[in-house]
């Protein structure tokens, strides 16, 4: 019985993902009569093409509810932080983000409406979030998970347009691009010939190069050992321990330091892992799980951390 229930909820999860993928397009217009009061003098009304359709804003939203930690980070990065009145329970960065108990996973439309938002930003619609908000005449903008770095830039620009911080968004994008280019240049050819294993949890779930994080790491020219398991599981396969040990990757990137308390020391204690090159040479790199699972501007921090290790790798 337990089994049936759990399989059922996995199916539900899958179904909701499908529903998100084909979220209907619709047009929501932010009905506002008192103009002005906006942050910067952009050209409002503004119409944007969001993932959930075309949206028109007569003025810059002043009461934003963000249900996406990545969007929260972007909004603060482009100077729209003051316009955010509430962020979901996982939006813990930056520290002055107005984190609330709002769930992004099972959004409660009444609780969201209680903040009287004039814009709700979300990453995934688990069912009828957008439709419910539409009925309450609350504009909603879908900012879905990025598939590549270009999506991050585009999302940041979009949020800039909508919030009246177009120039700030452009500046933030330039800064991000500069940092990433810096890492890529710093690493140079050292990345070629370097293999890496990127760990999502301590049961060896990982990412292929088809994922966002995989594509970003791929900019350094490294080879992902999980790419041999492509097609196994939509970009997030679970690797066999035997295979990881046999591949003996040059770098072990731990994106499970928070979730699963993994460190270079715990990795070294795993059966069969103590003789791995990366373990012996100290090339087990702890990463911040949160940054690794988001697609905000802090992706540059992560790439810099990895970049430094790749460089050390080539000189060792």
């Amino acid at each position: 019985m337990h089994r049936i229930r759990s399989l059922g909820s996995v199916a539900l999860l899958a179904l909701s993902l499908v529903l998100v993928a084909c979220a209907s397009s619709s047009t929501v217009s932010a009905g506002g009569d008192q103009a002005s009061a906006s942050a910067s003098a952009s050209a409002f009304p503004v119409t944007v093409d969001a993932a959930n359709g075309s949206l028109t804003f007569d003025r810059a939203p002043e009461r934003i509810v963000s249900l996406s930690p990545s969007a929260t980070e972007m909004l603060f990065a482009i100077g729209a932080g003051d316009q955010v009145v509430a962020a979901d329970s996982y939006s813990d960065y930056p520290s002055d983000a107005p984190t609330t108990k709002l769930s992004a996973f099972e959004p409660n439309v009444e609780a969201i409406a209680a903040y009287e938002p004039d814009l709700v930003v979300y990453a995934t619609d688990p069912g009828d979030l957008e439709r419910s908000l539409h009925q309450l005449k609350i504009p909603a903008l879908e900012a879905p998970a990025a598939a590549a770095l270009d999506d991050v830039y585009a999302q940041m620009s979009l949020l800039g347009q909508v919030t009246g911080h177009e120039a700030d968004a452009a500046a933030a994008n330039d800064a991000l691009e500069a940092r990433i280019d810096g890492v890529v240049q710093q690493v140079g050819d050292a990345g070629k010939g370097t293999t890496y294993y990127y760990e999502l949890d301590d049961t060896f779930y990982t990412v292929t190069s088809d994922t966002f994080i995989g594509s970003v790491l791929g900019m350094l020219g490294m080879r992902n050992i999980a790419d041999a398991a492509k097609g196994a599981a939509s970009g997030y396969p679970q690797l066999s321990a035997e295979y990881i040990v046999q591949q003996d990757p040059d770098l072990i990137l731990l994106a499970d330091t928070k979730c699963c308390g993994q460190t270079a020391a715990t990795v070294a204690k795993r059966p069969g892992w103590s003789n791995l090159q990366a373990v012996r040479d100290g090339d087990v790199v702890p990463l911040d799980d949160d940054i690794a699972s988001r697609w905000g501007p802090r992706i540059a921090d992560l790439l810099e951390a990895v970049g430094n290790s790749v460089e050390g790798q080539s000189s060792s």
Partner: peptide, 25 residues
Amino acid sequence: QQRNTDDLRAVYAFILGRLGTGGWH
């Protein structure tokens, strides 16, 4: 589980069953 969706993957891994990776332990 639903109050702590951060840990969903770890919980599902348990529920779907997995033979350990802990060697002889």
